[in-house]
Design a binder for these strands. Structure first.
Ligand SMILES: [Mn+2]
Ligand SMILES: [Mn+2]
Ligand SMILES: [Zn+2]
Ligand SMILES: [Zn+2]
Lengths: 139, 139
DNA sequence: TTATAAAACTATAATGGTTACAAAGATAAA
DNA sequence: TTTATCTTTGTAACCATTATAGTTTTATAA
C-alpha cells in the first residue's frame, strides 16, 4: 500500500498517469533488478491480472522509456530489456546463461570527450558480452 | 585485381574461403566505411551480380562475424550494421539522419576494470545516440 | 448523477528483419 | 569422371514489435 503510493509518486514525477497496469509494471521493474524482457514481465504479471494484454506491456514500457522513467537496453539482440535504474552504468550479458549484470557507473569523462564536441548526445550504452563467472566456474 | 588478391589474403587470415560473393561483400565493407546494413550491401551489389541472393549476404556476414573478420554493431535497433574496422572503437548513431559515426578508440582501461574480474569478456560495444552536427546545424 | 469526451487497455492483424530449409550450383578430392 | 563437400539461392517459417480498431476505464462538465 505504501509501496503503491511511492510508485505513484515516482510515475507522476515523469508525467506518467499511474494506472493499475503501469503501477504493476513499474513495481515489477523495481523489485526485479534483472533487466527483464517483455515476456518475463508479462508471464509473471499475467496470472495476477488475468485480463492483462501483452500489448499493454509494450505500450507501457515504450511510454516509460519515452518519459525517461526506465532505460531500454539493446544488449540482448533477441529481446529488448528494461532497467528501472536510470543511472548511467555499464552492463554485461552472458552468452551462455543469458543473464544481464550491472558492472560499473560511467565516468563523466565519457561525456566530455573532445570527439563528441559536435554531437548532441541523448544516451550512451556500454555493453560487454562473453561468459559470466557462474558459467565458467571462475567463482 | 591487386585488390582482390589483398582481400583473398585477408579472408584467408580468418580461415574464410574467398568465394566471389564473399570477396565482393568484404570489398564493399572495406571501401564503404559507413557501417552499412544488409539491405544497403545487397542493393548496391545486386545490380552487378544479378544472381546474388540476400540470404547469401546474411550467411556471409554471419560467417565474417563468427570468424572475427568484421564487427557486428547493435547500435541500430532496426537493422544490424557491419564494420570491417575490427579495432575496439565507440560509435554514435544520429536518430534523425541515421548515420553511424566512428568516435574514438576504447582505452585498455575499459578491459582492466576490477568489476570485470570474474567475467570472460568476448566483446565490448560503446554506443552513443542523439543528433549529429549536420542535423543540428552545429557545424 | 448523468452525459460526453479523452485516455488507456485489449485482441488481433500486419510488419519486417532474420533464420531454417531444401534444392541447385560450384569446388575439390579421388 | 565420379564423388563428396562446400556454397549459393529461393522460399517458407519464425518471432519480436507495431498498427489498428473496438472496448473499457477515467476525467470533465452539464
Ligand atoms: Mn542495469
Ligand atoms: Mn566503426
Ligand atoms: Zn552465465
Ligand atoms: Zn544526423
Amino acid at each position: 500500500m505504501n509501496n503503491y503510493m511511492q510508485i505513484h509518486k515516482y510515475l507522476k514525477q515523469f508525467d506518467i498517469k499511474p494506472s493499475v497496469q503501469r503501477t504493476a509494471v513499474m513495481d515489477y521493474l523495481m523489485t526485479h533488478k534483472t533487466h527483464p524482457t517483455i515476456d518475463e514481465i508479462y508471464s509473471t504479471l499475467s496470472p495476477f491480472m488475468p485480463t492483462l494484454s501483452k500489448t499493454t506491456i509494450y505500450n507501457t514500457l515504450n511510454l516509460f522509456v519515452e518519459k525517461g522513467a526506465v532505460l531500454h537496453l539493446s544488449i540482448d539482440e533477441k529481446n529488448a530489456r528494461y532497467d528501472a535504474d536510470i543511472s548511467n552504468h555499464a552492463h554485461f550479458m552472458c552468452k551462455r546463461c543469458g543473464k544481464v549484470y550491472d558492472l560499473f557507473d560511467l565516468k563523466q569523462e565519457l561525456f566530455n570527450k573532445p570527439q563528441l564536441k559536435n554531437f548532441d548526445i541523448h544516451s550512451v550504452e556500454i555493453s560487454y558480452s562473453g561468459f559470466c563467472g557462474t558459467c565458467t566456474g571462475m567463482n
